[in-house]
Nucleic acid binder design. Structure first.
Lengths: 254, 254
DNA sequence: CGTCATATTGATACACGTCAAGGCGAGTGG
DNA sequence: CCACTCGCCTTGACGTGTATCAATATGACG
């Protein structure tokens, strides 16, 4: 059981899975514990091999057995309607926890697919749960991750039902920037691992609309793009467009 | 501390709070435990007085101290954009858990307001967490509730970005029906405790659109309305419109 | 260097929002 | 018991943001 390798795409099964040797990741760590508890945690974690672009980590309807933490690369999760339409529910970067929507149900409510070559840590949920009884910190962090997911989705609901196309794209770029910054990467220049199509799908927009807004933002000097590379030229203006509170240096007065 | 009454609307403070004497609720219980553990749980729960319509249970930005379970009545949760626009993120009926989005953050990410006279149980989160270390079942149920919230929101994202106005309303009615049925109430005739305006807000539609669709559904013999009372006349057709899989009696063959 | 997915750009259509005007029902007070 | 008021709901006319359709352009990859 402990030696069960991670299976992907219902075809792939690799055997040579290294154990997680360190506490997960180097950036924003979802599960950061002291040395002793970290050791217990890494005992139950399994590191995946490099999953190449387009690989499914799990499919909607698959039995829910584990949650995952992205180690490197990017994942998207999505649901499909009965008409076969796909709705992307989230993008996941290194250090972020995937599959929390499956907690409390027998099966995964979404599919998870890599957007580029990606590696993850797998945490069998049963073991994670019993371990969380002994390690209060782990329990707290696990619930924090779930709370974070809930808040992110609430923000998406707001975006999808109240914001204009322009505000959606601005918000998207701003939040990406923020997440990269938190991980110690550049907040102003980064690579979009997802296609325009996927951005549109996620934001509830047609591809064409996303494309038009990207060009408009470029003309207005807000951003500069070169394929999937993007540079945020005027961050504060972008932030304003996104409809976020303006974070000036001093705003404590009132 | 244990005697602290629930405060509401930043004006209301009642003293005569009864302790939760039984395991919560009678319908779908989010926290159902055996007698002994149930006793421990009710030790930390506090029952609110009857909160009249329009009362805030907590406001966005309030310190996150506790989660709540609806005992009777209805609540809505909502966020506000910087432009002051309100987005309803959920409706909560008896037995359902409110405020889970606050877990892992210092403050409530949404406001919670009663839609009618409502009573709730309050569970101080700190105590709930430490209790969940001793009672594995409670820990599981707490996380299940969070997982459920995540899934509900993912479904809302799909609705908001992919479904037509008609599909949204049909989905809304269908899901309400389902929730009432689960609680042992009629699945075909019930009272909408929220206004048309609130329905529209929740579904990302203008009030007028909701109203028009309600009348259209009536003309087509799908529903019958009489103010806030609603009867689902043709459930299966409504279900089809909602874009849900058709649940015929026998669908096990293939 | 061809092939195919992805991206851009333009022209057109439509679902739904917005604006405006009653209508209906529930309280409230005379 | 009626008249008044005030929210909420309904219905109609109209405008618009964004989807859709269509035609290249661009880039990735073998």
């Amino acid at each position: 059981m402990a030696e069960k390798p991670i299976q992907v795409d219902s075809t792939r099964t690799l055997n040579d899975i290294p154990r997680a040797s360190t506490v997960i990741g180097s950036g924003a760590q979802p599960f950061a514990l002291d040395a002793e508890d970290g050791e217990k945690l890494s005992q139950i974690a399994e590191a995946s091999p490099a999953l190449k672009k387009g690989t499914h980590l799990f499919l909607q309807g698959d039995p829910f057995m584990a949650i995952y933490v992205v180690r490197a690369g990017t994942l998207k999760t999505y649901t499909v309607t009965n008409e076969g339409e796909e709705q992307i529910t989230g993008f996941y970067f290194p250090g972020e926890v995937v599959a929390l929507g499956g907690v409390g149900t027998g099966e995964h409510p979404v599919s998870a697919k890599t957007l580029e070559t990606t590696t993850v840590f797998e945490y069998p949920f049963q073991q994670l749960d019993s371990l969380s009884a002994k390690i209060p910190q782990l329990r707290v962090q696990l619930m924090n991750s779930m709370g974070k997911e809930i808040r992110a989705e609430q923000q998406m609901m707001l975006l999808l039902s109240k914001k204009t196309a322009e505000q959606r794209v601005a918000t998207f770029l701003y939040k990406l920037s923020d997440r990269f910054k938190q991980r110690g990467y550049s907040a102003t220049i980064f690579r979009l691992s997802m296609s325009r199509n996927e951005i549109g799908n996620y934001l509830g927009l047609a591809v064409e609309t996303v494309s038009r807004i990207f060009t408009r933002f470029q003309k207005n000097g807000l951003i500069a793009t070169e394929g999937k590379e993007i540079t945020l030229v005027n961050q504060s203006e972008l932030n304003t467009l996104a409809g976020n509170p303006v974070l000036t240096a001093d705003c404590g007065a009132l």
